[in-house]
Simulated assay, not measured.
Amino acid sequence: MNRNRIYYVLITVVTIVLGLASRQFADYFPFWIKEYLGDVLWALMVFWMFGVVFKRKQSVTIAAYAILFSFGIELSQLYHDTWIDAIRNTRLGGLVLGFGFLWSDLICYTIGVAIGFLLERFFYKSVLVKK
Rank of each mutant, 00 (worst) to 15 (best):
N2M: 08
R3V: 02
N4I: 02
R5P: 05
R5W: 03
I6N: 07
I6K: 03
L10N: 04
I11T: 15
T12G: 13
T15Y: 10
I16P: 05
V17S: 06
V17H: 03
L20G: 12
A21R: 03
R23I: 11
Q24F: 15
Q24I: 15
Q24G: 15
Q24L: 15
Q24E: 14
A26R: 06
D27S: 14
D27E: 12
D27A: 14
F31D: 03
W32F: 13
K34W: 10
E35C: 07
Y36H: 00
Y36V: 01
Y36F: 00
G38Q: 06
V40I: 01
V40P: 00
L41H: 04
W42D: 06
V46E: 04
V46I: 10
F47Y: 10
F47K: 05
F47L: 03
W48D: 03
W48M: 08
W48Y: 06
M49R: 11
M49E: 06
M49N: 10
M49G: 13
F50H: 14
G51E: 09
F54T: 00
F54M: 01
K55Y: 02
R56P: 06
V60T: 07
V60K: 05
T61F: 07
T61V: 11
T61H: 07
I62Y: 02
A63I: 05
A63T: 05
A63M: 06
Y65M: 09
I67C: 02
F69Y: 08
G72W: 04
G72C: 03
E74N: 04
E74L: 06
S76F: 15
S76P: 15
S76A: 15
Y79W: 01
H80Y: 04
T82D: 10
W83H: 08
D85C: 11
D85G: 09
A86D: 04
A86K: 05
A86F: 03
A86H: 01
I87M: 05
R91N: 11
L92I: 14
L92C: 10
G93Q: 09
G93F: 08
G93T: 06
G94N: 02
G94D: 02
L95D: 02
L95Q: 07
G98H: 05
G98I: 04
F99N: 15
L102A: 01
L102P: 00
W103T: 14
S104L: 07
S104F: 09
L106Y: 14
L106G: 13
I107Y: 07
T110F: 00
T110L: 01
G112C: 01
V113S: 02
L118W: 04
L118D: 05
L119P: 08
E120S: 12
F123I: 10
Y124D: 13
Y124L: 15
Y124I: 13
S126K: 13
L128V: 15
K131N: 12
